Amino acid sequence: MALRMIGDKVMGLVANQYKAALGTQLATYGLRYEDLLIEENREVQEALELADPAVQTARTRRIKRAIDLSYKKKSMKDYAPDQDNDMFKKEIYVDIEKIRQRDQEYAQLNAHNKM
């Protein structure tokens, strides 16, 4: 029990450091964590289809801007130094989780068909 608590505390510290480092890299290009999700995954694709058009447009613009900044070897701070983005804002991740739960439930309910 004590060993598990120590392990959880260490993992929490490492996770926070990783999140800070990742947040810095995302801020360099003006991206959000959700923008890194691969669109070819069925769950992500379905969540994007269900998302508000404004969310889809904003995601596309952030990705295009990041590609442009990377090509020019610039950072977002060069163009908008005062802009403060929430890199870990969840807009489609909640839908992705619901889709995964739905698919798991469907698989469990239809497990008898495999026999």
Rank of each mutant, 00 (worst) to 15 (best):
E97W: 06
M115N: 15
K73A: 11
T28E: 10
D86K: 06
N113Y: 15
K90G: 04
L13C: 05
R42V: 12
R61C: 03
P81F: 10
M76F: 11
G7D: 15
K89G: 04
E39T: 08
R4F: 07
R59Q: 04
V55T: 03
T28N: 05
A58R: 02
R65P: 01
D95K: 07
A27Y: 03
K72C: 07
F88V: 07
F88Q: 03
A111M: 10
R102D: 12
A107T: 09
A51C: 05
H112P: 03
F88W: 14
I92V: 07
E43Y: 02
E40F: 04
G12I: 05
Q108C: 06
M5N: 09
E40R: 15
L109W: 05
G7L: 09
E40W: 07
K19H: 08
K89S: 12
I99F: 02
K77Y: 06
A21S: 14
Y93K: 07
K114C: 11
I99Q: 02
R4D: 10
Q104F: 10
K74R: 15
Q45A: 07
D52H: 06
Q101H: 15
E39L: 06
R32C: 01
L48T: 01
N85S: 08
R61W: 04
E43K: 03
Q101G: 14
E40G: 06
A27S: 11
E40I: 08
Y29I: 02
L22G: 03
Y71P: 00
T24W: 06
D8R: 14
D86A: 05
D78F: 14
Y33T: 03
D8Q: 14
N85K: 11
E34D: 02
D68C: 03
T60C: 10
T24V: 13
V55K: 00
V44F: 00
L36D: 04
R59Y: 02
V14G: 05
I96Q: 00
K74P: 03
T57W: 04
K114G: 04
N16Q: 13
A15W: 07
L22R: 09
V14W: 10
D35N: 04
V44N: 02
E105H: 12
I92N: 00
R62D: 00
Q101Y: 08
P81Q: 09
P53S: 01
